[in-house]
Design a protein around this nucleic acid. Structure first.
Lengths: 238, 238
DNA sequence: TCTGTGTATTGATATGTATCAAATCGGACC
DNA sequence: GGTCCGATTTGATACATATCAATACACAGA
């Protein structure tokens, strides 16, 4: 789920995630040696953009609440959501001076804004920070490559199963219930993430429901009844 | 084209690419302060694997000659090529201890092998090396995201056009002829990269030929007759 | 030059997903 | 409770690409 940040802390088991320097989501300050540098928080309404393609990259963002969708567009309006960022994730971290895609809040959200200058300083002054950033990027690259496999080679049903499974695994990493999935995004956003249409996403969720693999508690709440079957479906194990 | 290395030197205009420390493809030694650390070169026959999924990541690799295809597979044999690496590119650079995909030479190739321990040392001793590595990863992530857009939202014709355009642009960056494209890989590999079948790739190359946009000098040699038309096709500009 | 073999192209048909259209759902507000 | 309105589901059909099959090409070896 492109959760580079969490991946550092929870998936790969690295002790030194970026959060060590950036705080835990409560503090509005960053540890820099013995001093602190202030950052600011920014609340976002649903559908509000955090940045647009071409905007100057002035800050990195740490998600505090909600989910941010990052996407690319074709001139005729076709959209590809490239990743969903969840609380704990960092957006940015490359060295590009301008954003190469759009970022939009999929629900009410809050982010901490860290000036790039602060990041540059941290890299030189805090040994390990650069490493953590690099690890974050590597994890994100890896997840994007998994998504390539989904988009290029999986059927619609397999894509949907893979998507649900990712949420389940994120829950597990977070210590939440791995079989109760909350979908903060609409069907349209799932479709633009999986390279499908709304209707196809809906039909395949229905199919999973009919098969008894999942149950729809509400439109945005799904409980997984058979995780191992979902896993088999997700990577085409027949 | 996932040419992270070249991107650093030629695309983003960064002065300090990883090559500054790794040499120019001739030298078999790495500058480390005033001393040198030896690396070794490894020739690869066509279809020989550089590494397999799960292998311990002992080295980073710098491509010296040929093209390496990196891919993921589904249990039933479906394959997704995730990137093609060209001379000058670096493979690796994350902090994962094991490879998460396969890497195979698509033609006879040669790589320089750099022990990860050397890389770790360089990061701490050579200011700027870590940054260059990070920049490389960021560029690779960006290119992978572009590929997501292709796989998720583009038609077969648009995918093929995009693919050819990438090669053309790489040529341009390298100072080569942007309208004479050499395809070192087979149709099957293009198909596995674009999420299509061999037949569909072939049909769409034929379509581009029939339209007069390209000319097939041989099966693996294509000359572009109208680059701006190819560009329009590539991103769905109608 | 002929033959064999892997690769690419072309053709006919099947199929999965998109598209177009309608019905249903579910929450906000009166 | 009733109405409205966007979101989702369901249905009928179209279409792009996959699949299956045959042919053409290119190059290596006899």
């Amino acid at each position: 789920m492109s959760n580079a940040q969490l991946a550092i802390n929870n998936e790969t088991g690295h002790a030194a995630g970026v959060n060590e320097w950036l705080g835990d989501g409560q503090s509005a300050q960053i540890k820099m040696g013995s001093s602190f540098t202030t950052t600011h928080e920014r609340p976002l309404d649903m559908h509000e953009h955090l940045f647009m393609i071409g905007d100057k990259q002035t800050h990195l963002y740490q998600i505090l609440e909600g989910v941010i969708g990052v996407y690319k567009m074709l001139p005729d309006g076709r959209r590809q959501i490239v990743t969903f960022y969840y609380p704990g994730d960092m957006i940015g971290g490359g060295d590009k001076s301008n954003w190469t895609q759009h970022a939009e809040a999929l629900c009410n959200a809050k982010v901490r804004c860290i000036p790039v200058s602060t990041v540059d300083t941290l890299i030189t002054t805090e040994p390990g920070f650069g490493q953590a950033l690099m690890s974050m990027l590597a994890t994100e690259l890896e997840e994007t490559r998994d998504q390539l496999l989904s988009l290029g080679r999986k059927s619609a049903l397999e894509k949907v199963a893979t998507f649900l499974l990712r949420i389940s695994r994120r829950n597990k990493r977070e210590g939440a219930d791995e079989s109760l999935l909350h979908l903060p995004m609409k069907r349209a956003e799932i479709a633009d993430y999986l390279g499908l249409t709304i209707e196809t996403v809906s039909r395949n969720i229905t199919k999973l429901k009919t098969t008894g693999i999942i149950r729809l508690e509400s439109k945005s709440e799904i409980s997984v009844k058979d995780i191992s079957l979902l896993e088999e479906l997700a990577d085409g194990g027949n």
